[in-house]
Nucleic acid binder design. Structure first.
Length: 574
RNA sequence: GGGACUGUAGCUCAACUGGACAGAGCGACGGUUUCCUAAACCGUAGGUUCCGGGUUCGAUUCCCGGCAGUCCCA
């Protein structure tokens, strides 16, 4: 039985007939208060027409004889401080150890969730500004999967729009034959920049010509369509190269173009429902009543915009997957846009829960990241630097003093990749998504302190310990019947913390914040390091040794599961 | 002009949704390797939680009013 249920029962026993719906038992804020605390005596004091300490005393009385608690105290204004018995703790640790998926509740079983993230624009290279949606989205994706949800990860590429007129015109007239034959995203990017510059010329000829190419594309011209398809394929190939490095996988790559045919029907429906009305040649939905302004669903030139394509997209997803919710991971600038079309979708009768997870803007040296500012650091470049820095440390640890530096092996490079990429991902995932980030190399590539490598290092030490004890592959060498016997304060703190893992995963999912999990893992690793430093393990007496080793194995299991949910690799040797 | 988000140690951030003395990392200073991986550990210094009210037994957290920064919309 959960602790909160036990304490709730005690409340009910002390005050029969009262409703104590929300009794919560939480980890103690300070070890000196015990292991857990319940603050609800303070809340229910009024209801019970009594003072909090008296309520606490009656509940404590009702808890007497319960073998879960070794000690129940009332402190301060009426806090209930609970100390659990070592037998209870040992059995809970054994439960966690035996549990599937480290005890993560399968609350999403039978439900589907669509997660829309990363979504870069085609024909452009990914840069540091793309890290956030990709890494945060991917972590939310993994977290929901771990809860048993069926997740459809969709990459809503920017693969349609005016830029393709500019690109097609530029491709035909500004690239060399060689560049056309060996088309890369870098070439496309260059082609776009050159063509867009020419489109700004005074006579407007180039611009007009770009527009015509776009119209031809939209009308299904065979040549332009083939070119467009080629641009998209090359772009996706390049994106996949980045995703492979980051360990990100999508189920579908449905860009904006996928919804072209659905949009007219959506607009028609909006008109039929009386939601969309003509205004200055455009078709708009008035949302003034909700103080959301006006949303354009068809421009005066007949073109559609994001609101329309998002509505078409939600229609398709609902019909195809019938998801319980759809999660959009995009930057915070789009908050108004999402509020607008969520509201329209609700009016159209969609009941699927639509969730916008906004993240803060990334800047560099205080300026927005853009081609114009010339501060666009490519994702590839960042990842290469991450590997370079980690490799330098890996190699410095390999070498013996005075000896010439050894050449890195393939293994060394793989390790440096795991560490470097882990550092990049963790530096983003460890903050609340909403905070703005001013990019700096040192912050993004932190290898010490509260960083990815700190956690990976803790894991490698556990593995090494287990191996020395005779285990393999991070699995315990111990027979299952050796129990947990928690004795020292450091062991106890770590043990209590490990029991919180499933709760941390649930909290991270409910808040759509991987940072909640990252924070939990860091705290856990800190407690482990303290324990590890202060308590001999392999050299202890057999019984203590076995119990401590078992705790280490459990920690390793939790840590690697948690890092896995963040998309961070856990090498066994560092 | 309207709106959203943010404001916590020198810097970067936490604080489990209202709990006890606001915690970490980095940086600074000092200590710990014949001992299970020092990418580690221990200690010291560092705070008017932007300001002012309000609600509450209790506010970094909720409400109102300011101020500052970032961003959206017009």
């Amino acid at each position: 039985m959960e602790l909160s249920e036990i304490v709730k029962a005690a409340f009910e026993k002390a005050y029969p007939g009262e409703d104590f719906g929300g009794v919560r038992v939480v980890p103690a804020t300070d070890p000196k208060f015990g292991d857990y605390q319940c603050n609800d005596a303070l809340k229910f004091a009024k209801k019970a027409k009594s003072n909090p300490r008296e309520v606490g005393a009656k509940v404590a009385e009702a808890l007497k004889g319960n073998d879960v608690f070794e000690k129940v105290e009332i402190a301060g204004p009426g806090f209930l401080n609970l100390t659990v018995s070592s037998a209870w703790l040992a059995s809970r640790l054994a439960d966690l150890d035996a549990a599937e998926k480290c005890g993560i509740p399968q609350s999403g079983e039978g439900k589907c969730v669509v997660i829309d993230y990363s979504s870069p624009n085609a024909a452009k290279q990914m840069h540091i500004g793309h890290i956030r949606s990709t890494v945060i989205g991917s972590a939310i994706d993994r977290i929901f999967r771990s809860l048993g949800y069926r997740v459809v990860a969709d990459n809503h590429l920017g693969d349609w729009g005016t830029q393709f007129g500019i690109l097609i015109k530029g491709y035909r007239e500004l690239l060399t034959q060689e560049e056309r034959d060996n088309l890369t995203v870098a070439n496309l990017e260059k082609c776009y920049v050159l063509s867009a510059a020419k489109a700004k010329e005074e006579d407007g000829l180039w611009k007009e010509s770009c527009k015509q190419e776009l119209v031809k594309l939209q009308q299904g011209d065979k040549d332009n369509l083939a070119l467009w398809k080629r641009f998209i394929d090359i772009s996706i190939g390049e994106f996949d190269r980045m995703y492979a490095k980051l360990g990100v996988k999508f189920d579908t790559y449905r860009g904006e173009s996928y919804y072209n045919d659905t949009m007219p029907g959506v607009v028609k429906k909006l008109q039929e429902m009386g939601l969309a009305v003509e205004s200055e040649g455009a078709l708009v939905v008035n949302l003034e009543e909700e103080k959301l302004g006006v949303a354009i669903v068809r421009k005066s030139d007949g073109g559609y915009n994001y609101t329309t394509s998002d509505l078409a997209c939600v229609k398709t997803r609902v019909e195809e997957y019938d998801p319980e919710r759809i999660i959009y991971v995009t930057d915070a600038r789009q908050q108004l846009h999402f509020k607008q079309w969520f509201s329209i979708a609700a009016k159209m009768g969609y009941t699927t829960k639509l969730v916008h997870v906004p993240f803060g803007l990334m800047s560099y040296q205080g300026k927005a990241i853009s081609t114009r500012e010339g501060n666009l650091i490519k994702l590839d470049e960042l990842l290469a630097e991450a590997v370079k820095r980690s490799l330098a440390i890996v190699m410095s640890r390999r070498g013996t003093e005075g000896a010439p530096a050894p050449q890195p092996t393939d293994e060394d490079v793989k390790l440096a990749e795991a560490i470097g990429y882990g550092a990049v991902k963790y530096s983003d995932l460890s903050h609340d998504p909403i905070t703005d980030i001013d990019f700096s190399w040192d912050k993004a590539l932190a290898l010490e302190g509260n960083s990815g490598p700190y956690l990976q290092y803790a894991y490698a030490r556990v593995c090494s310990l287990v191996e020395k004890a005779g285990g393999t592959d991070g699995a315990s060498p111990l027979p299952k019947d050796i129990g947990f016997a928690v004795s020292t304060p450091a062991e106890k703190r770590l043990s209590l913390q490990l029991l919180e893992f499933p709760g941390a995963v649930v909290r991270a999912a409910e808040a759509y914040k991987p940072s909640v999990l990252a924070d939990y893992l860091f705290q856990t690793a800190q407690l482990y390091s303290t324990f590890y430093q202060s308590s001999p393990i392999l050299k202890s007496e057999p019984e203590v040794r076995a119990s401590r080793l078992r705790l280490c194995v459990l920690f390793g299991k939790v840590l690697s599961a948690g890092l896995g949910l963040l998309g961070i690799d856990t090498p066994r040797h560092i």
